[in-house]
Nucleic acid binder design. Structure first.
Lengths: 211, 211, 211, 211
DNA sequence: GATGAATGAGATTTCATTCAT
DNA sequence: TATGAATGAAATCTCATTCAT
C-alpha cells in the first residue's frame, strides 16, 4: 500500500461533467453499503467499485487511495453532524440552559441512532485512518456553536464558559458513544439519556450564577 | 483467511511450562510494540513473531489465528482493568457516594493515561474484532462491583440503583474515552475530569435520598 | 509501484537452507529466460515466478521488488565480467602493450557475443534502473586491473598511464557495445574488431616511450 | 496493449495546419519533459498529454499508440543528428583526413552533450522499442556521408574505404556514448575526446597510402 | 475535432497460514 | 517441538486505449 500522504486523502479531481458527479455519489453510497454488509476488513476497492457499478479505474480517478474513500466518508459525516448541532444551537438560542443540554443530547443521540449500522460502520472504519485533523475541525465548529448558545442562556451565566462547554460536550459525546457501543437495550439506553439530561442540568445549576 | 470461530479465539493451549509463559508474554508485548510502531494495518503475524523473537510456526502453536492474538490482548487488558475497578470498589466500600465516584473516575482515567500509546493501540486494534462478548463480560463485572459499592454508600441510598449505576458507569467511561481521544491539552483534560467529578456528585445528590 | 530505495535493491534475506539456495538460482535463471523470450516489458514478477516454478510469494521473500531482480542480475553479470577482465589482465602481465589491448578486446568481445541474446536482454533491462553505482564499481575494478597491466608492459612506458588507460577502456568498451548493437554482419564485426586492435596499437605507439 | 505493428508506428496523420504542427511539437516537447522529470516508466500517455496541454483523445489523433510517440521522437532525433553529420561531412570535403575525424568527433560529442538530459532520456526511452530499422537507416545515411567525405581527403587514400569508415564510425560513436554514460568528469571526458582524435589519426596514418 | 470519463486487464505486492525438515 | 520456506488468494493500484458527449 502506498504511504498515505495528507494530499492523497482529498479527491484526485473534481467531477466536471454530470456523469462524473453521479459516479462519485454512487461510490460514496457503495462504500457505506459495503461497510455495512461486509464489515470494515472486507471494504476493498474492487468490492466498492463493483457495488457502485463502476470500474476500479474509475474509482481511482476520484479517490487516489482506498484511505481517501474512508476519509471522504468521515468528512461528509462529520460535516452533516456539525450542521445538525449548529442548527440545534441556533434553535435553542436564548432558551434556558436546561433545555439547551436536553436538545443537544437528543440531537446527538438521534444522529447516532437513526442509522445505527452506519454509525457502527463509521466507528470501525476509522482504525487505520488518522482523522485527528477532521476531529479537530469538527470539535471547533461544535465548540463555537455551543459556546454561543450557552452564553445566550436565559437563566444562567457561567464564569468559565469555555470549561463548562468543554465539559458538557465531552461528557455528552462520550456518553452517547459509549451507550451506543455498549449495545444497551433500548429502554436502558433511553433511561441513560434521560439521566444524562438530569445530570447535566444538575451540573449546570451547580456551576451557574442565576442571571 | 479462515473464518473466525468463537472457539478459535482462545489460545490453542495453555502455557504449562515457564518457557511457554515467557513466549506468550513476549508475543503479547511484541503485539503492542508492533501496533504502536507500525499501526494496526501493519500488524502482521510475521512482524509480531519476529519482534517477539520466535518463529511464526511457534506463534501459531499458541495463537491459532491472528484474531486470537488481538482477542487475547483485549481480554487481558479488560481483565486487568476490571480488577482495578473491583479493587477500587472494595476500597471505597462504605465511603460517601461523592468519594466513590471520584475514586472511580481517577482509577479509570489513570488506567487509560498511564500508558497512553498502549491505550491508543488497543482502541485501534479492535476494528475488525467482534469484541462485544468481551465488553459484555467486562461490563457485568464492573456493574456488579460498582453496584455493591454504591449500595454501601454511607451517605446515600438510591431508589433505582441499577439505573444510577448504569448511568454513572456509562458517563464516566464514555467521558474518559472521549477526553482521551480528543487529545485535549493536559490541563484541559484535568479540568474536565474535575468537572466530571463535580457533575457526578451533583447528579448523585439529585437522585439520592439521604440515609 | 513502491518507490525504489537503495536498500530495497539488495536481496531481502540470504537463503539459509539448501532449498532456498536452489530457489534463488531458479529465479535468476528464470529472469534471464523471460527477458529473452518475452522481452523487457513482459518481464513481470508473475511470469518470472511461474517460469522459476515458485510462487510469487516466494520470489518476494528474496527480492523485495521487481527492480531488485534486475539489479541482482546486472550485479552478477558485471561481477563475472570484471573477473574475466581481471584474469586477462593478470595473464597479460608483462606482455607487450600490443598483445595487451588485443587480449582485452578479445575478452570483452567474447563476453558480449557468446550469449548475444543475454547481452541484449541485459542492455535493455536497464532502462528503468539506476545502475550508476554498479557501473562505477565495475569501472573501478576494471581500471585498477588494466592500469596494473599496462604499467607492466614489456615494451612501453606511459607518461600519463591513467589517461591512456581511461582512453583505451572507454574506446574498447564503447566500440564493442556499438558494434554489438549495430548488428553488423559477422565478418563486418570481426573486421571492426581487428581494425580496433590496429587502431589501439597505433595509438599506443604514438603515446608511449620505448622502454 | 495492442500489438505493435510497423504501420502503427508512424503518426496517424500528418499535421496539415499550423495548429496541428504546434500540437505535435508540444507533444514531442512534453514527452521529453516527462521522460526527464518522471523517468521512462512514468512516461504515460495521460502525463504527456497533460504536460502538452492537450487531451489524451487529441494525442491519439496524432499518435495511435504510445510506441508511436517514442518511435517518432527517436526518428526526429536521429534525423537531426544525421543532418548535422552530413553538414559536417560536406564542410570537411577535401580537407585532410585528420581534420575530418576531428570534426566528426566534435560534432557527435556536441550533439550528445549540449542537452545531456535529453540524450539520457532518449537512451532510456528505447528499452522496449525495436528501433533497429531506425538505426539501420541512420547508419546508412551517415556511412554514405562519411565515406564520401573520406574519399575526398586531400592527404590520404584508403584501400578499403568501407571498412575504414565502418571502423571509424563505430569507434567514434561507441566511444562517445560510453564516455557520456560513464559520467566522466568534464576534464576527463574532454581528455578522452582529445585522445580519441589522436587515436583515429594514428589509425588513419597506419591504414592510408599517401596520396 | 476535441474532450476527458470510463474501462478493465494486468501489474505489483502483501500476508495469513501450512508443512517439510 | 521449533523453524522458516513456501504458498497463493486477494488486495491495491496503473495506464493504454476507447468512445459518448
Amino acid at each position: 500500500m502506498a504511504p498515505v500522504t495528507q494530499q492523497a486523502l482529498s479527491p484526485r479531481k473534481r467531477p466536471r461533467q454530470a456523469r462524473a458527479t453521479a459516479t462519485v455519489d454512487a461510490i460514496y453510497e457503495a462504500t457505506i453499503q459495503v461497510l455495512l454488509s461486509d464489515g470494515p476488513h472486507r471494504l476493498t476497492t474492487t468490492r466498492v467499485a463493483e457495488r457502485a457499478g463502476v470500474s476500479v479505474g474509475t474509482m481511482y480517478q476520484y479517490f487516489p487511495q482506498k484511505q481517501a474513500l474512508i476519509h471522504a466518508l468521515n468528512e461528509r459525516y462529520l460535516e452533516s453532524l456539525a450542521e445538525r448541532i449548529e442548527t440545534t444551537s441556533r434553535q435553542q438560542h436564548g432558551a434556558s440552559a436546561g433545555l439547551m443540554v436536553q436538545a443537544l443530547i437528543e440531537t446527538y443521540w438521534h444522529a447516532k441512532t437513526e442509522r445505527p449500522e452506519v454509525t457502527r460502520a463509521l466507528y470501525r472504519s476509522v482504525a487505520d485512518l488518522d482523522n485527528s485533523a477532521l476531529i479537530e475541525r469538527f470539535a471547533q465548529r461544535v465548540d463555537s456553536a455551543t459556546i454561543t448558545m450557552l452564553e445566550s442562556a436565559s437563566d444562567s451565566r457561567f464564569q468559565n464558559v469555555a470549561m463548562v462547554n468543554r465539559t458538557l460536550v465531552t461528557v455528552i459525546f462520550g456518553t452517547v458513544r459509549n451507550a451506543f457501543e455498549r449495545q444497551l437495550a433500548n429502554h436502558e439506553a433511553d433511561g441513560v439519556m434521560q439521566q444524562l439530561v438530569l445530570m447535566c442540568r444538575a451540573y449546570l445549576k451547580a456551576v451557574s450564577e442565576t442571571r
